[in-house]
Amino acid sequence: MAAKGEPVYYSPLPPQPSEYHCQQPPPNQGRHYILLPPYHNRPSWFRSLWFQLCGASFVLLCVAIFFLWPSDPHISVVRLRLDHVRVHTSPLISLDISMPITVKIRNPDFFSLDYRSLVVAIGYRGKQLGFVTSHGGHLRARGSSYSQATLQLQGIQVHDVFHLLKDFARGSIPFETVTQVRGQLGLFFFDFPLKAKVSCEVIANTDNQTIVRQNCYTE
C-alpha cells in the first residue's frame, strides 16, 4: 500500500462477479435494441396459389383486350348492275350509265357501330368514273346491314366506251371500288370516332348482274 499523501499509480480492481450481477446499470445506458420486421413463413401452397391467380388475371386481361379492341367494319360490294345504258354520238361518242350498287357492312366488334355516311367510288381501267354517297345507319354488335345507292355515270369518253362495250359483250366487266365509312363506335358510355377505307377489285357479271369475284384490302 502507498503511504498517505503519495499519488496512486494503479486502477481499482473490478468488482467481483457477484457484485457485478447485483448492480443494476443506469437506465438507458449500455442497452441497444434491433428492430426486425415480422417474418411470416407462408406455406408453399399459398405461394403456388398466388402465382396461379396472377397468371389467370393476366390471361383474362389479354382476352378482354382482344375482344374489346375496336376493329374496322368489313365492307364488300354484293351487287353491281349496269342499268339504263345510253350511247351518245354527238358531239363525241360517249356513254351514260345508271349503276345501282348494294354494299354490305358487317360489324365484327362486340359493341354497336353508328356510321354517318357511306361513300363508294367506281373506277374502270385505272380511271375513276364517279362516286355515290349513301345515308348512314346503325349496326348492332356483331351485326350486318345493307346499303343501296345508284351511281349515275355520264359522258364516258370513246376510249373507255370501246373497252367497256367489249367487256360488256364478253359478259364480265372489271371495276375498282373504293368505299369509305365515317362514324363512331359505342363502347359502354363512350363513343370513339371511326374512319374506314376499303379498296376492292370487282368482276361484275353482266348476264345475271352479280359479283363474280372480289378482292378487297384495307387502306
Rank of each mutant, 00 (worst) to 15 (best):
L194C: 10
Q148H: 08
Q16V: 04
L113D: 03
D114I: 13
L82Y: 04
V202D: 08
F190E: 00
S57A: 14
P43K: 07
P70T: 09
P100E: 03
S145W: 02
A141R: 10
L129I: 05
S145M: 07
W45G: 12
P27Y: 09
E19H: 15
H138T: 07
N208R: 09
S18T: 09
K195T: 08
R116A: 13
V63Q: 07
V212D: 10
I65E: 12
D109Q: 13
H74P: 00
R182L: 03
L185G: 01
N41E: 15
D114F: 11
T210G: 02
L13M: 11
K166H: 10
T206E: 02
A141E: 08
P27G: 03
R81Y: 04
S147I: 05
V198I: 13
M1R: 12
E176T: 13
I75T: 07
E201G: 11
A204W: 05
Q209I: 01
V103E: 01
I156Q: 01
I105G: 00
H74G: 04
F131I: 00
W50V: 10
G155T: 08
N107M: 04
F162C: 02
C54D: 05
E176K: 05
L187S: 05
E19N: 14
K104I: 02
L95R: 01
S48P: 00
F46Y: 13
L165R: 14
H32Y: 14
C22Y: 15
K166G: 06
P7N: 10
I211G: 03
H138N: 08
T102F: 05
V198N: 07
L153E: 01
I75G: 01
P15N: 10
F131Q: 13
P193L: 12
G30S: 12
D96T: 11
D160E: 06
H88E: 05
L35P: 02
Q148D: 06
P193Y: 09
F51R: 09
Q209V: 02
P73K: 07
M1F: 07
F175G: 00
N28L: 15
N107K: 08
V78A: 03
T150L: 09
H135S: 02
R142N: 12
V78I: 15
Q16G: 11
V161M: 03
P193H: 06
L139V: 09
L13E: 05
F110C: 03
D72W: 04
G136H: 14
D160Y: 04
P100V: 02
K197P: 02
V85M: 15
L82N: 07
K197Q: 11
E6P: 00
I156L: 14
S199Q: 14
F168G: 01
D83K: 11
I34V: 14
G5T: 10
L164C: 05
S76E: 11
F67N: 04
Q154N: 09
Y217K: 15
A64T: 14
P43Y: 05
F175Y: 15
P17G: 08
I203L: 15
Q16N: 09
P100W: 08
I173T: 04
L49P: 03
P12E: 10
Y9N: 13
